[in-house]
Nucleic acid binder design. Structure first.
Lengths: 344, 344
DNA sequence: CCATAAAATGAAAACGTTTTCATAAAATTA
DNA sequence: TAATTTTATGAAAACGTTTTCATTTTATGG
């Protein structure tokens, strides 16, 4: 009704006027530049607070070529692991005065490419990416990298050398832990449903699986190892294949939780008792794993730690201006843990 | 290594120079202003594409006072319903050339207030909000509203008149459908676990419940109706209370899925057969409801439709410049449907 | 063909910061 | 106290766009 009282957004000039100082000094005070008197600094801060001053990001960004915005590309925000990582990143980044633009690639390479373009065009100060499973070529990030914009990959990271920072879970150890656990609880004929080997995730988890099997001198049945898209349907088909034979597995390590859930479903439908006839372990500790019957064992990836590490590294790179030496290829590895439940 | 080839971000001046035109004309052409010749417009567009020109959002925003950015405040992005809504909003908004800044209130009023402040300060062109369950006072949005920034509430909306747009699911109908379904499958002693009545969600769902009971002349046992925070623990306690009596319910309508899952868990732990001894229905069609044993019946809220509607209304308000008459209080209501599964 | 209206373009100011360069004030030294 | 260095401040330009106002070009009608 009375839309006359449009709230006034105060500018740096209003502070300058109120304090009989020049806008330059105000700007310096607000960015606590060394060459400004302590008293002046306090005065300015006080007055700014009093006037409810908020820096105009656009003006600031235009001049300084900094947006104070970080871009994030993620397959899907509804994936529990990513949702948790995002939350941590956001809260933490927020404390450092950065905004976060969250984008979803829907696990589509073309979308990822488009988003990289868009985020580049919108001049993000940094980019955080969990790649698509199809992504094997990373040239769509070249623009960012060669502009000196920090790019941090997490979870799904480039397999070969790429001049960016990597932060990943200890997938090898996860695979190893899961498999060892199955072996130690008495399993001998262990099946493994995994994703396409184009992703570091499944390469490493599967390597961990193989290492454990080898270490315990257990044979790996080639026809019980699947590398395919980790969907509900595919998993059920894989189960059907395995359980149509005369010799059947007595345990399954699924490289994600969705397929572990699917396997459990298959077991129930086909009168296979879990864990008596078949032990199952998944990967990621998705909340769904705790409500199935029996509850599923799985691997915890500590998404909050991943998010924390991302921001830590990011802020360091942003602070140090020109993006660390550029070739700290060593990936940061976040530990994982076994979550033991009733399915194993 | 060779970070010399910093990609050049072309400006409007580069296009102007290439075409021997003034920057003003370029700007007009790009915004297809009426007063620019068709041929010129084409030339500009072509040259812009050729030079890989992307408008500098900050410069544009500074001048026109438009950020082309929409803010979104949501309790938690990991909640399935919200994740779906967000995805739709983002994809759709993106087509209209808008960015989305997603923020999480963690269902904390203080956080919501802070976020409203921040988003106001960062000059979003519009704001979309799913409130906290505690939010009963909305004055932290006043600044936005009185600045003429469209504010759209969805899902959890203000109960009393507030000069903004509301988009909500048909919670009354949802409650009615769920309860009627329980009744029609033979239940007589129906319990109801719901949230605090400070939220429109639970007011409406509970009203639907009461309407259905009344219509079928079934008594409502006061001690079987709970209005509390809808957590796993609370739900289990409520179940314990109800099932300690001599007369026990034969059906339960839970106002969200988490509590329905908790109730199912309680039933299993206490030898209560579902659905034989107790029918259960939840609310929201969270993916978890389909993997419990037995799978839970629930109410589908069509998050994609909600998201679509939000953007539709939003774009209209943004286009029409000064935010529609300002008092179209009528809420947009998105229909819901019953999802019948094995628990009822 | 000229007067007039309409359409297309250009010049320049403006948006709110930051930053370079210059200058003034204060502190230090001789 | 004067000369010099250090510290604090100010004036003004710059960032890339949009928009107002003025001007030029083109179309229209008598």
């Amino acid at each position: 009704m009375n839309k006359d009282k449009k709230p006034q957004q105060n500018t740096i000039l209003d502070i300058a006027e109120a304090l009989k100082l020049s806008p330059a000094t105000i700007s310096r005070a607000l960015n606590n530049h060394p060459h400004v008197k302590e008293k002046t600094k306090n005065d300015v801060l006080k007055m700014a607070a009093q006037l409810g001053y908020r820096r105009n990001q656009m003006a600031s960004g235009l001049r300084s070529n900094k947006t104070h915005t970080v871009g994030l590309i993620v397959p899907r925000i509804s994936m529990f692991f990513h949702a948790e990582v995002i939350t941590t990143i956001q809260n933490s980044l927020h404390k450092h005065g950065y905004n976060l633009i969250i984008c979803q690639s829907n696990d589509l390479l073309s979308m990822e490419e488009e988003l990289a373009d868009i985020l580049y065009a919108s001049r993000v100060d940094a980019l955080i990416v969990a790649c698509t499973l199809q992504t094997t070529d990373f040239s769509h990030f070249d623009k960012l990298v060669s502009s000196g914009i920090p790019v941090i990959f997490y979870d799904r990271v480039p397999l070969d050398a790429y001049p960016a920072t990597f932060i990943k879970g200890d997938d090898f150890r996860g695979g190893y832990l899961a498999t060892t656990h199955l072996i130690e609880t008495g399993s001998q004929r262990i099946a493994h449903i995994s994703g396409k080997l184009s992703s570091n995730l499944y390469q490493d988890r599967s390597a961990g699986f193989r290492k454990a099997m080898e270490q315990h001198q257990l044979p790996i049945h080639a026809e019980w190892v699947f590398h395919q898209e980790l969907t509900h349907e595919n998993a059920k088909e894989a189960m059907a294949k395995m359980f149509s034979g005369t010799v059947v597995p007595d345990a399954l390590f699924s490289a994600n939780d969705v397929t572990a859930i699917a396997a459990l479903e298959f077991a129930k439908e086909n009168g296979i008792q879990v864990p008596r006839d078949l032990k199952i372990i998944g990967y990621s500790n998705d909340p769904r794993t705790s409500i199935t019957t029996p509850a599923l064992s799985t691997i915890e990836q500590y998404p909050a730690k991943v998010g924390q590490k991302i921001v830590e590294v990011l802020i360091e790179q942003l602070k140090s201006g020109e993006k660390g030496s550029g070739l700290e290829q060593r990936p940061y590895v976040i530990p994982v843990d076994l979550i033991r439940r009733m399915s194993s």
